[in-house]
Amino acid sequence: MDEKKVKQVSEFEKKEKLDLNEIAALIDKKKENLAETKKEVDKISQSTDETMDYSKLTLSEEDALKAQIFTCWSVPIGLPFSEDLLVRVKLQLKPDGTIEKLEMLDHVKMNTPGKEKFRTLADSVRRAIQLCNPLKVPTSGYERWKNMILNFDARDMLGG
């Protein structure tokens, strides 16, 4: 029993001893790790910024645009649910957000017999975009957003 106790103490002491001896090394190592992590973080943020410059709006930019369009889009709530409740629109914008060109990506469907409900939805989308013209676009990075696609998806709202 005594032997055991002693053994424990000695191990503790041993450990403490070891820690003390290696403190300096550990501190140095930690500094190194921190530096590396910082480097990594910088790298990641740099890389994220790069991506966003070319293919995305920032979350707050996207939210501002969505919030504007939500208020303009009067959804035809009589439409029965179907997978057809998605209208894709390609926009070409001026630097102040004014719409220069509006292209319905499924325009063929609009005049297809039997697709009158899709036409009703597409009409509502066209009205929404006109009503929101000019769009609340970011003040910088025109090249990034001068062309964009808006996917008007009414499937959740119309009870899928």
Binding site: Y54, S55, K56, L57, E62, L65, K66, I69, F70, T71, C72, W73, S74, V75, I77, K90, S124, A128, E143, R144, W145, N147, M148, I149, L150, N151, F152, D153, A154, D156, M157
Partner: peptide, 19 residues
């Protein structure tokens, strides 16, 4: 490819106010 990839935004809400 990077420079010309298009931004796509999903609009999943609208207003239900009378037209």
């Amino acid at each position: 490819v990077k420079a010309y990839s298009l931004i796509e935004i999903d609009i999943t809400r609208g207003n239900l106010d009378p037209l």
